[in-house]
Simulated assay, not measured.
Amino acid sequence: MAEKNDATIPTGNADFQWSAFDSEAYFQQYYGEPHPDDDRITRLAANALKHALPEGRDLEIVDVGTGPNLIPFLCALPRARRLTAWEFSRSNIDWLKAELQQDALRSQWLHFWEEVRGTYEADAALPDNPLPALRGKYDITQGSIFDLPRGAWDAATMFFCAESITARQDEFEAACAAFAGAVRRGGTLAAAFLVRSEVYVVADRPFPVLKLSPEAIENAFRGLATNVRADLIGIVDREIRSGYSGCLFLTGEAV
């Protein structure tokens, strides 16, 4: 999330107060009661990282625009040498740090951890409680998606970021390019995108979404990734949660 100054475009990334983002309200609204769509996204992300190349090697993994969400870390933990949350919002960073310093993970995160363990099955001896391992592997970096360093990681995840920080097509495409470019050639990309959403509201404050079709999302990764696969999840004609009526989960290999 980058703070730019263009007052003529009210739908741009810089026009929203990301420092005022209510992280706990977001968590309660979107993950307070895990939905079957969340479970499927978790399994798909864990499976993508399970098979990330080179197999059998611990990886440097970044999650872009992490927000108040530990699912990316949980999915990546079994393969990670180091985990980086690349997050712009100060409130989200403070929330993540506090969440990871708790004595125990919330029941919701343990629920998603069981989805991860089930995906890895016998291929990894994973503990009942992932918190001690997480604490030894993570970094949280404050930074804009537009400022990601190129080729710095072996794999990258992104959950509902590029399309939910702007309503501008050019910014969305720039965000996708920065995400894909942060991974070394051949590295795994795994990302979830909102489909057909236009806005979401957190604690009575609206935030932008670029309304996208599945085809538009896949088109954004032409030239950025190979072996692209797209899975549609829970697409319905009503909101399941604010701004969410289904999504597309995309995987590929960075070029």
Results as ranks from 00 to 15, higher is better:
A220V: 10
T141N: 06
H51G: 01
S91T: 12
A167M: 07
F16E: 08
C247V: 07
R168N: 12
C161G: 06
E253F: 07
A104C: 10
N92H: 09
N92S: 05
V202P: 04
R238E: 14
T66I: 00
G246A: 12
A191T: 02
S197R: 08
R43V: 07
E115R: 15
W113M: 04
V62Y: 07
S242A: 07
C161M: 02
F193W: 06
D154A: 11
R168E: 15
Q101T: 13
F73R: 00
L210D: 04
S89P: 05
E198V: 11
A254T: 10
G243A: 04
A25L: 00
E173S: 07
W86M: 01
G32A: 01
Y138K: 04
L100S: 01
F146G: 11
A203H: 10
A48C: 02
P36D: 05
D58L: 15
D37Y: 13
D94F: 13
Y26G: 04
A177G: 08
L44K: 06
H51W: 12
N92A: 03
G246L: 09
M158E: 08
F21G: 07
D139L: 13
A167V: 05
N47A: 13
E121P: 05
L212N: 15
I235E: 10
D139T: 15
N227T: 12
R168I: 14
N92R: 08
I41V: 08
R79F: 03
V183W: 09
S242F: 03
Y30T: 01
D170V: 08
N129E: 13
L77Q: 01
G246F: 11
G234V: 03
R222G: 06
S107M: 06
L74R: 00
L59Y: 03
A162L: 11
L100Q: 06
T251Y: 07
M1K: 07
N129P: 06
A2D: 10
P54C: 12
S23F: 06
R184T: 05
G118W: 09
L70H: 00
E114F: 09
L49T: 00
T141I: 15
T166L: 04
A152Y: 10
V202M: 12
G12T: 11
S213W: 13
A156N: 00
R57V: 10
G65M: 05
